[in-house]
């Protein structure tokens, strides 16, 4: 009798517990699906994921060996510098005209202006007095070496194009240049101002050919003679490369 009564009381209790469990699960399922995108896996997936996470903590299932590729963006290199050589004729006042050669480096500040550093060498010949008299020597052989350097500012005043035939055009620029530097001649150093103009033609985007006409002015007092201003005119052809 007592066991029947116990069975009678325990059966509804078990049924209510079972219903409660399934109701809570259903409720939980609905709550999750309202937050997440709708999937058919429902609570089973969530439970499986949770158990998988627990398992990962204790023992990793997969060890990812992914090596990240380093993506290096190529740099844009500048080509503002121009290096070149030149050769031509330099007229040294009183000492005749002789060959001159040297090197130049240009730095293009903007599309219109550039800075130029130059170094050149030449050699003075005999003066008229030396040639006529025969035994007078104004300067020793070593002192006839003519070296100069200068730093100048150039202005590309007239940029344009040169047309060769119907299908070829080359970029060009007529420029004016002025600067200062030094000249070593006759054993003396002279502060020298220079000025002139030139014409640059670009063979391609990296190579240019140019003609330069330059005047160099400095004070000199050769052999204690009265000081005078010397004008040395120079005409050169040059080839230079942008880098």
């Amino acid at each position: 009798m007592e066991s029947r009564l116990r069975l009678f009381l325990l059966t509804p209790l078990m049924v209510s517990i079972l219903l409660c469990n399934s109701g809570c699960s259903l409720f939980r399922h609905k709550t999750r699906t309202s937050n997440e995108p709708a999937t058919s896996s429902g609570p089973v997936v969530v439970d499986a994921a949770a158990s998988a996470t627990t398992a990962t903590v204790t023992e990793p299932v997969l060890e990812p060996k992914v090596e990240r590729r380093k993506i290096k963006t190529p740099k844009i290199h500048s080509s503002d510098f121009e290096i070149g050589m030149f050769g031509g004729i330099l007229g040294i006042e009183d000492f005749g005209s002789h060959s001159v050669y040297g090197a130049r480096v240009d730095f293009h500040i903007s599309e219109s202006f550039f800075l130029q550093g130059a170094y050149g060498r030449s050699r003075g010949g005999k003066t008229t007095a030396e040639s006529l008299s025969g035994n007078i020597q104004v300067l020793s052989s070593a002192n006839r070496n003519y070296n100069y350097y200068n730093l100048s500012l150039g202005w590309d005043a007239l940029p344009g194009e040169v047309f060769v035939g119907e299908n070829r055009a080359y970029n060009s620029a007529l420029y004016f240049i002025v600067g200062a530097g030094g000249t070593k001649f006759a054993g003396d150093n002279h502060f020298t101002v220079n000025g002139g103009f030139g014409y640059r033609v670009l063979v391609n985007n990296w190579v240019s050919a140019r003609i330069d006409i330059r005047d160099y002015l400095y004070d000199t007092a050769l052999l204690n003679s009265p000081k005078k201003v010397v004008n040395n005119l120079e005409a050169t052809l040059g080839l230079s490369f942008y880098f």
């Binding site: 740099k75 844009i76 290199h77 063979v203 391609n204 990296w206 190579v207």
Partner: peptide, 20 residues
Amino acid sequence: SAVTTDAGAMPSWVPFFGGP
């Protein structure tokens, strides 16, 4: 080689200067 390169193309000497 630098002078005779086609107009506009990168000349062969650029790599010597670390060109791109």
